[in-house]
Design a protein around this nucleic acid. Sequence first.
RNA 1: GCCCCCAUCGUCCAGCGGCCUAGGACGCCUGCCUUUCACGCAGGUAACACGGGUUCGAAUCCCGUUGGGGGUGCCA
Length: 472
Amino acid sequence: MSSPVRVRFAPSPTGFLHVGSGHSALANWLYARHTGGEFLLRIEDTDAERDRPELIENVLEMLQWLGLQWDNEPPRQSERRALYEDAAAKLLADGAVYPCDCTGEQVQARNKEAGGKPGYDGFCRDRGLEPGPGRALRFRTPREGRTGWTDLVRGDVSFANSDIEDFVVVRGNGAPMFLLANCFDDADMGVTHVIRGEDHVNGTPKYLLLGAALGLPSPEAFAHMPLLVNEGRKKLSKRRDDVSMSDYRDRGYLPEAMVNYLALLGWGPADGVEVRPVAEIVEQYRLEDVNAAPAFFDQKKLSFVNAEKIRSLSTEEFIERARPFLTLGEPAVEALRSLATEVQERVRTLVEVEPMIEFLVVDEPTVDEASWTKAIVKGRSVPEMVAATLSRLEALPADGWVPDQIEVAVRQAAVDAGIVNADGEPQLSKAQGPVRVAISGRTVGPPLWESLQVLGRERTLDRIRAMQAKLP
RNA sequence: GCCCCCAUCGUCCAGCGGCCUAGGACGCCUGCCUUUCACGCAGGUAACACGGGUUCGAAUCCCGUUGGGGGUGCCA
């Protein structure tokens, strides 16, 4: 019987949480939840130069937002340096590492002379240098044999040891390198499965060699997840692509949509049902079924999933989820409440909510240029329709200001204005345009009769009169 | 350059030797529904990279080619 599954997500605070790291974090979390194991977190802040401590907060906040709850108090590697130093001392005592005082320039120059081969050439390997300030510690990689592992996503992978350079384990300034801290901590934390991005594949033999030299147990298995790529099929980059998790949150994406979509990258449920509750994904997710090929991060499909998730919310939930996106405050919330179900099935993201109900909140709707052109400039019998609508609606009694009667009135207005088909039936698709623009400034929006009802008799009539005055 | 990985519709996923004249989803297109938009519904578009094997039989196994990605830091 193997030990219970224990996985970890180990971000370094050098940037905001990115959808790519979110994808890896999710794979870890899903695997842990699926197997009943533990999902641990660890902060890899060993690079004092580049680390931005304030970003730790963003990473934790985003994981929380996604609902990827972790099971430990995340250790910080910056606070565990003594442990890595001890490990390094042991390696040095065992002769597994050796001091090196080569600068990058020197190595490069030698490589260039030797035919342009990159990587460290082993110059200091047998120089017998004493450790000291400015001298890095390099791992004495075996020259023979192969190092490999079982990868849940890729099968058996191995490298010839002769292809692995003598990599740096401790920097000249005494700071431990990623590989040392990473490998040491995984063993120290009892990590059983290392699940991370494909960009770590090449570092895995070094990890394994280092762990063996340290006498540490190796993880049971690794899983290298496919990288997320952009339209150009390149690894998602902070500079070019929309990768910040918090940006998606701010643009009105639901965390459950992000989680659901991310799970679908590299993997698919056996029954083909793509959009579903996370609990079902946890149940079905298997790392063995994950594809090794890079996957395109498709914002269109993300939007689709988001729209599905929005529509599956109860009306109350929808209003609460949209609330943070309503910049117009409580009146906007009230306006949304009055038209919630109509709005809910029309938006793909939460930021699209406010523009749909804004006309109920502001004193005067802002007129959208394209809508004006479409409905007013290019519309048929616009002045007639506006005038007819005004008189028909004015004729409605105060207690008749309900959708059914408003519809009847507008239909009659269309007939009055001559906007009819061959059978003399009103052509509402054309006739409603000017009315819609008059009350909301746009040609698209929630159903008109309900909109007019919520706007109210006086405001509706005022806006139509104002429109009449502005007609070309 | 070298090393590692990958290769089914534009995209994501299914297919793990016969059920495949290759299935689902997104996108796109058409139609229906319809007061706009959206939803919903009915259709359509479109792929096994190529060449060799293995086999009675290959999208599925093997090899090669081509193509793509990743790595190649005293970053993580």
